[in-house]
Design a protein around this nucleic acid. Structure first.
Lengths: 352, 352
DNA sequence: CTGAAAGCGCTTACAG
DNA sequence: CTGAAAGCGCTTACAG
């Protein structure tokens, strides 16, 4: 019975033109049941609805025959839930910036999300003022906000955002912010790095960062942590700011008379190694260099790069889990999670 | 007038509980106009609707006052358009695999998409049979399918997918497939590499790939192109398959007596360099090594890696542009676009 | 056990 | 110029 194509003349749809999407209603008509029953059988949900096995089989057959696919957008609208979370980067460059930082980050997030049936959308902060528009438009259940800045404007943005937020690599939590913070222990990391150099006899240790990153949370924190670690030892801190391209950076470092330098990222350290090579300055012979992140990248530089390690992938996976908890309505017991850092000693540091 | 909060008693919504989303209807009521007018003023569209400047101002004021945000999911449902495109990877590992391949790919795609107001969703092929489910659920306007395989099963999948597809790094176009193909000229690339080695006096040139990748399109193409380039010169081809971890790979290469090896990716070449280093085999002294992709990664290996270059970022940006054209309903003039390869000679190759 | 109907928040012919 | 109403394709109280 009912093996003829669904008539649906009630609506007299334009069946002739573009191949209209097959809907739940079509399946219901073909199987001679209600859309309620079809929804229940095909998509589960509402357990209070019971459908006999016979009808269920009819429904499944009809769906198969008509090649029915659920329209997730309609479902999302109805349920106010998209099972999609966003990862927000400060800028487009973010993607190609750190040699492996972004990759590990996405890999960690994706490993959790995909397993739990969530999707991952990439967002870049193009227009600062439009973030709310992107985050509050209903398409995202939550967001992982990378390198979240701490200026008042951004903080107020956070308050206005209607979805749960996990701030990634954004240092300390703001007072009264609903967001969760996941970061690494920059203080510990720089303490380890300075300690390592100090033990090697270095007393003039520089800290290097790009002027473009002067306000990036991690950059600020690491700079301050460096200064504290140096101060603790009664040393003199040498903070060097350079342009992204490292023009004159080598000269400026030389002028300070430092014997070692800590770069705020491994990406920067890698580029510095190149410049030092060009300038004929041997590492670690004349200058010891330390980076931050300690991904596989550090195994491929010349010399292999000593670096502070933060477990990016694990942090990202944790951030994703935490976000799903928030979305599920579970309030976390703590607002900040700080992952420990360690120091991977390779070949770019030596006694002074 | 009408400065009191919207009554909306008609519906008697649960205003007391969770802060319900502010809708277009709320704005309309607050401004004493129709939703038609609000939609027109706030979101543009339907140019046939005209609203006086006075009313428009009222509407904008009401929207501002109520802190109205459009619900993009509802709009997407209505317009059957999400302005979101997917990037589909074969597996999760894809993300952390090639040192910079994925990053450049995403960067290229994102650079185009974000500028044109599109979003980017990451998908991984977890369950092969469920791809249609993901691609046909209405949440995506199109997809960039990376390393699309050529088995009959996948081809039939492509035919069933209701959204435009651009296949990336997937070699030749399938007969009668609607998909667009963007790839690099593997043949040219391997010809250049073999030529380079041949000129350096190498006559025993091996080709190395991981057994896990035996059916990956690019791997197949490059292998065949290698064999052809060798055959053209009357040489003997030495194809070596190894496990991902490269167990015994060095021994096997040694056993073949080859003086040089072309790896199908730079990632593999990088790992091989490590193994060779451990085994005390000097590169390029005892063995010349060539990789494929030639990203910044090759500048950081020891020695710096000679590699065939494919312009990943440009290819990805092109793929994104092409996909948007397809989505816009513009049929492309050609089904395949092949980007030229070149050879970046660095320090991992030398005379035999 | 089963179905008719309301409603998620938009946009857009259509009629005044 | 303006608005009432239909409808995108789902899910889910609610009533039989």
């Amino acid at each position: 019975m009912s093996h003829q194509p669904p008539a649906s003349d009630k609506k007299a749809r334009a069946r002739s033109s573009a191949p209209r999407q097959v809907t739940l209603r079509d399946v219901a008509e073909a199987a001679n049941v209600s859309t309620t029953a079809v929804s229940r059988v095909l998509h589960g949900g509402d357990a209070s609805v019971r459908v006999s096995e016979e009808r269920a089989a009819q429904i499944r057959a009809a769906a198969e025959r008509l090649n029915y696919r659920v329209n997730a957008v309609a479902r999302n609208l109805r349920m106010s839930r998209t099972h999609t979370i966003g990862v927000l980067f400060e800028n487009l460059n973010g993607l190609a910036d750190g040699p492996l930082y972004t990759t590990h980050l996405l890999d960690g997030v994706a490993s959790v999300l995909f397993r739990r049936g969530y999707r991952l959308t990439l967002l870049a902060e193009i227009d600062h003022s439009d973030i709310i528009g992107s985050l509050g438009d209903g398409q995202l259940d939550g967001v992982i906000w990378c390198k979240l800045a701490r200026d008042p404007e951004t903080v107020s943005l956070i308050h206005k955002t209607p979805i749960p937020i996990v701030a990634f690599n954004a240092a300390a939590a703001e007072e009264g912010t609903a967001a969760l913070y996941v970061t690494c222990d920059n203080g510990e990391g720089l303490e380890l790095a300075v300690d390592h150099l100090w033990q090697l006899g270095h007393r003039k240790i520089a800290f290097l960062y790009e002027s473009e990153e002067v306000n990036t949370p991690d950059c600020v924190d690491r700079r301050e942590a460096y200064q504290k670690a140096i101060a603790t030892r009664g040393g003199v801190h040498i903070v060097v700011e350079c342009p992204w391209k490292l023009n004159r950076a080598v000269d400026e470092l030389k002028a300070t008379g430092c014997t070692s330098v800590i770069c705020w990222t491994e990406s920067l350290a890698g580029r510095l190694l190149d410049k030092l090579g060009e300038a004929g300055i041997s590492v670690p012979g004349e200058l010891s260099v330390i980076g931050f992140d300690s991904t596989q990248f550090c195994e491929t530089t010349t010399p292999r790069l000593t670096a502070i390690r933060q477990p990016i992938r694990e942090m990202a996976a944790y951030a994703a889990e935490a976000l799903l908890e928030l979305i599920g309505g579970n309030k976390p017991d703590k607002q900040s999670t700080v992952f420990p850092c360690s120091l991977d000693i390779r070949n770019s540091t030596a006694t002074v």
